[in-house]
């Protein structure tokens, strides 16, 4: 009885995972090794197993490499920026007078709960070359107006900025809560021992928040690899494909050009990359809790 009750309890969860994760995963894996396209849909007789041909195709596809580079750039620049901004705002909120806290917390968290599409459209106006607020501010301080969404380099920066702006509030809330859990006495001791503000931040606050930061980094990495809505609305992948993310490319290939085989291969590659990142992160010691 005892030996089967455990497995019985996890069975429903396992069944759900199998149904919604494992089976689709195997389906996509299978699909990625076929030529599934519009002609196959017309007649299943056209379906062929083509092994790794889709992967070879993607390997030689410059657009795929560019999408990988763009997405990687957003992940590598966006995740640290998000964490830093989350941390700074969390510490700021916790250090200001309590009656202002609610206001700032709401203001910083608002982007998280806003619809990405609405947010991206608002940013489109802010980033407009001629009429946008950002360029007006730049000009006001004697800097040149920038062609934010028209230059391949600036567009990637703009996308990263929007992604970070949209996401940092979540980490801020979590980090503010974690910061509140740190006893004030730890800082009292630091003051008595003569540790300054910078030292308090670097040798107390950051190390204690490290496990939380690690968790947020994991979530952000997973989220940013799946970059889609921001470039979809802001730039549609342009200019010159500079803001085409892997997921956006997958969408184009699969749902606009009916090349499901190639799109599935892209999905598999994205999955493997994300696995790799999660694995790397789990094997990097960022947490004192793991001992």
């Amino acid at each position: 009885m005892k030996s089967i009750s455990g497995p019985l309890f996890v069975l429903p969860a396992l069944a759900l995972i199998a149904l919604f994760v494992l089976i689709p995963f195997l389906g996509v894996l299978g699909l990625s090794m076929t030529n599934f396209d519009i002609y196959v849909l017309a007649s299943s007789a056209n379906l062929h197993f083509i092994g790794g041909a889709n992967y070879v195709h993607l390997f030689h596809d410059q657009a795929a490499w560019q999408a990988l580079e763009t997405t990687l750039t957003v992940v590598l620049a966006g995740v640290p920026a998000t964490l830093a901004l989350s941390l700074i705002c969390a510490l700021m909120i916790e250090s200001i007078a309590p009656r202002w806290r609610g206001l700032f917390r709401t203001a910083f968290f608002l982007p998280v709960v806003c619809s990405t599409v609405a947010v991206a459209i608002s940013w489109r106006y802010l980033l407009n070359t001629h009429y946008g607020l950002i360029n007006h501010l730049l000009v006001a301080v004697d800097l040149p107006a920038l062609n934010w969404l028209g230059s391949p380099t600036l567009a990637v920066i703009a996308i990263t900025v929007v992604v970070v702006w949209k996401g940092f509030g979540y980490g801020m809330i979590i980090l503010a809560a974690a910061r509140r859990e740190i006893p004030e006495e730890l800082y009292d001791i630091a003051r008595i021992e003569g540790a300054g503000v910078r030292q308090q931040l670097l040798s107390i606050t950051v190390p204690i928040l490290a496990p939380t930061l690690g968790l947020l980094a994991l979530l952000d990495v997973a989220g940013y690899w799946q970059l889609f809505a921001e470039p979809y609305v802001l730039t549609q992948g342009g200019p010159m494909g500079s803001t085409m993310s892997l997921l956006l490319l997958m969408y184009d290939r699969g749902f606009r050009w009916w090349r499901w085989g190639v799109a599935s291969a892209l999905a598999m590659i994205l999955t493997v990359i994300m696995w790799l990142f999660v694995w790397l992160q789990r094997h990097t010691k960022t947490s004192w809790r793991e001992g």
């Binding site: 730890l186 009292d188 001791i189 204690i208």
Partner: peptide, 8 residues
């Protein structure tokens, strides 16, 4: 609460 640094 002793105020020991948990990460040290």
């Amino acid at each position: 609460n002793h105020a020991l640094y948990p990460h040290m």
